[in-house]
Structure formats: C-alpha cells, structure tokens
C-alpha cells in the first residue's frame, strides 16, 4: 500500500539530500542449524536527513534488530550500513564507541539514565565521556526545549517517567548528533507524557535540524513521524508518508495479508 509522496516545496529540496543513514542487503541470522532465526532477510532502506522516520511492525518483525544494525549496536550477518557517510557495519568496536559519543544519540524505552548522576550530568554524559566541552548555548536551548530548566539538579529517582524520558531526549540531542535512534521511547509512559516526548522529538527535527529514527508499535507515536516504514518477517513491506493515526492503523491491519513471498520496497534474496 504505497502512496505517492505528497511533497510540499520545502520538502522537495530536502528529499534530494543524501540520506542520513542507509542499508543495503542487510541480513541478520541468529543461532545456527535447526535453531536458526532469520531476523532480517535482506533489507534496503534509506532514512532521510532532517526527518522523523518511524519503523513499525508486529513483534518478531525485526524492527528492533534493524535499528540496532543501523545504529552500530549490532553487526549484520551480511550487507552494509552507512551512517552520515561512515560505513558502520565494518567499524571496529573502538571506532563504534567513539561514534556513539557525538555522532549518534540513543533513547531507550527504559533505563535511560544513570541513577547516581543528576539530570544535568546525565544530559552532558556523552560529552563528558568524549572529553569535549559542552556548548552552553546549545545546552540551554535543549534544556528549555524539553522544559526541564528547574529540574536539572534532581536525580532520576526524583523525576517522573515522562521527565526522565525528556532528560534522555535532551542527552541524545545536546551533542548535535548526526542521527538520533529511539527504541520505543514512549513505551512506558502515559498518554500525556508520551505526547510531550513525541512533540519534542518532532520539534527537534523541525526546528533544531535533527534526524530521528524511531522504532515503535504505537500508531499514535508513528503519527508524529514524517514517514513510517513497515517491517514484517524481516523484510521491508510497506511505507507510509505523512501518516495519521488512522492511516497507520489501516496499514498495520493490512500487514497481516503479507506473506513471506510478497514484498514491495526492498528485494528478496
């Protein structure tokens, strides 16, 4: 179910820019012999610069695995991943570690913060690790954008779930990374807090010029994205541009109709 993208003039220029991350022929196999599990079966995908891209799919579809491979947290069985011009899939662990400090930002579903550090220290953590000076202007900008200016000296135990996620968002963005990967960022939050976090992520793309890739199973979260990619059984099966909650729900319902034999975006090997 592919719709032709309805481009507005501004977006048209952006679409021609090089993708922030791309994968070619990505496969991931777990285990061996009889216990083999094919998490990814050959994925080609481009993630646009300056956009919020959502990756959705039922459990077992490989969406988390795809994000892990794109982010350099996991090594694919075959295929290549390029992030911001760097070939991540063949990098050494040491280089990847360096990458995670300032090039790539992470937001997880839970356990995002170091409990013994204050919110401010958590936000500057990647920069402290990289021994880079913190750009105070950027720090203030990001902190204000998440609305936590008066909670900076609090420890995570003293913050609500939503506030903790917002601190995680701030941390992911303060170093001006090339791309932010978010794994179910609103999975543990109530609707109000979810809205805040998603709103911030969208705003960061629109006004702070970030690129964000988000894995989610929540159609409401996906509706905040510019583009939604659908995975099923390790393959990219559908794509939706300018999603709304109902269009996403409809697309998900349709996914059940796809078997391993059918795929639209991305070849089969």
């Amino acid at each position: 179910m592919v719709t032709t993208p309805e481009l507005d003039p501004v977006r048209a220029a952006d679409a021609l820019l090089e993708p922030i991350a791309s994968a070619r022929g990505l496969t991931k196999v777990h285990g061996s012999g009889e216990a083999e599990v094919h998490a990814l079966r050959g994925i080609d995908v481009d993630l646009a610069r300056g956009e919020l891209t959502a990756i959705m799919g039922p459990s077992g579809s490989g969406k988390s695995t795809l994000m892990h491979c794109l982010a350099g947290l996991d090594r694919p069985t075959s295929g290549t991943v390029v992030v911001d011009g760097l070939e991540v899939s063949s990098m050494s662990e040491r280089k990847l570690t360096k990458l995670r400090r300032t090039h790539v930002g992470f937001i997880f579903q839970a356990f995002n913060l170091v409990p013994t550090l204050t919110a401010a220290e958590n936000i500057t953590l990647p920069l402290d690790i990289a021994r880079r000076p913190v750009d105070r202007a950027r720090f203030d900008e990001v902190v204000e954008a998440v609305g936590l200016t008066d909670r900076l000296s609090h420890k995570p135990a003293e913050l609500s779930g939503g506030q903790q996620q917002r601190v995680a968002c701030a941390r992911a963005l303060v170093a001006r990374p090339a791309v932010v990967f978010a794994d179910e960022p609103t999975g543990n939050l109530d609707s109000h807090a979810s809205g805040e976090v998603l709103g911030f992520l969208r705003r960061s793309v629109d006004s702070l010029d970030q690129s964000v890739v988000m894995v989610t199973h929540d159609p409401r979260a996906a509706s905040y994205a510019h583009r939604v990619l659908f995975l099923a059984d390790g393959l990219l099966v559908a794509e939706l541009v300018a999603p709304t909650q109902s269009s996403v729900l409809a697309a998900l319902a349709n996914l059940d109709g796809y078997s391993r034999a059918g795929s639209l975006a991305g070849g089969q090997r």
């Binding site: 570690t97 990458l99 995670r100 356990f111 995002n112 953590l125 990647p126 941390r171």
Partner: peptide, 16 residues
C-alpha cells in the same frame, strides 16, 4: 547490566 549497557551505548569505552 542494563546501566552498563546504557553507558556503553552512549559511548563509554571498554577501558573507561
């Protein structure tokens, strides 16, 4: 374990 994973994910090296 999870906290260590988080730290590694934000770029803490193995030596660190």
């Amino acid at each position: 374990t999870r906290e260590i994973g988080l730290l590694r994910a934000v770029g803490l090296g193995r030596l660190q």
